[in-house]
Computed example of a mutant assay.
Amino acid sequence: MAISISQLIPSPTSPFCLNLTPFSLNPKIPSSTPTPPHLNVLNHYRRRKATSLHRCSASSFSEKHHANSPKSDDIVELPLFPLPLVLFPGAILPLQIFEFRYRIMMHTLLHTDLRFGVIYTDAVSGTAEVGCVGEVIKHERLVDDRFFLICKGQERFRVTKVVRTKPYLVARVAWLEDRPSPSADVDVDGLANEVETYMKDVIRLSNRLGGKAEKDVGDLRRNLFPTPFSFFVGSTFEGAPREQQALLELEDTGARLMREKETLKNTLNYLSAASAVKDVFPSSPSSSSSS
């Protein structure tokens, strides 16, 4: 569901990407956001192994929010970053801040609680009303007053009212938490294990298609409870931000895991078909032509 603040967002200028390179706060919002035939789970997995910044463990993000987390019925004011990406609880987001109004905001945040709201926007669907708090865990201020930030996703929120638009957006937000599944028959822990299995199969098949050596994928769940694991899985669906937004908005862990399972199953079917075609029509070795 879109809210009316989309027209308040200026036309951005830098490219969309969610990786470990600094992300500009002037993102270029494409006219449409294509969903690739299969999700970029493999690239996210490789980055997760390569850096501890993407490591999300039970010790760093438990099933419940941390002790000083806001209550779900609290209404607070939060500065907002509308961006063409989706931040999940427990995920890491690097940012580069150079636009003047956001530098103003950073100066304010550095003297308060270092928390702001990341909320998804694009030119087609507008600005979402559900986002995720980003907490600054590392920052570097450069001599030209730009900032490099490393942020970590915390609580989810829903925008209830925009209270200020200049120099940057500020909104009243209500906190979101997953509710117990309406069906007592849903085994969320079993679902989480199924999702992990599908993820491993997708990674293995992607490696095979890419000509990578067969090797054990390892433990993807890392003792995470089902809810934070479902957020981790959603964060790997890079290239499909609208699907990520739908996952972020769900307030039922079981429903989120079921949707992720279906997405991974479809991805695996696509990769299996591509692998079968490759087996039937293997690429011929390149050779130089001569006359």
Rank of each mutant, 00 (worst) to 15 (best):
L114Y: 14
G117C: 10
R146H: 06
I119E: 06
Q154F: 08
G134W: 08
T165K: 06
P167R: 00
G126I: 09
I119A: 03
R164P: 03
T127Q: 01
K166E: 10
V118K: 06
E129T: 13
V133Q: 08
E155G: 05
F157K: 05
G126R: 05
V162T: 07
V143H: 11
E140Q: 12
T121M: 14
R158N: 09
L149Y: 01
K166W: 01
V163A: 07
H139D: 04
Q154N: 10
Q154K: 14
D144A: 05
D122E: 09
L149C: 03
Y120P: 05
T160H: 05
V136N: 00
G131E: 04
D122P: 09
L169F: 02
G117R: 12
V133F: 00
T165D: 08
H139N: 06
Q154I: 10
V163D: 03
S125Q: 14
A128Y: 12
V118L: 15
V136F: 11
S125H: 15
L114C: 15
R146T: 15
G134H: 02
F148R: 11
K166S: 13
E129P: 08
Y168G: 02
R146Q: 12
T165N: 03
K138Y: 13
R146Y: 02
E155H: 09
L149Q: 01
V124H: 14
F148M: 11
K161Y: 00
E155R: 04
Y168E: 02
R146G: 09
T160E: 12
G126K: 02
V124W: 10
K161W: 01
E155A: 07
F116E: 08
R141A: 12
K166M: 02
R158K: 13
R115W: 02
C132I: 04
Y120A: 08
V170I: 12
K152Q: 11
K166H: 09
I150P: 00
E135M: 08
A128P: 09
K152C: 04
L149N: 01
A123D: 15
L169C: 00
K138D: 14
R158G: 08
C151S: 09
K152R: 15
Y168M: 00
V159W: 05
K138N: 14
P167E: 04
C151F: 06
T121G: 13
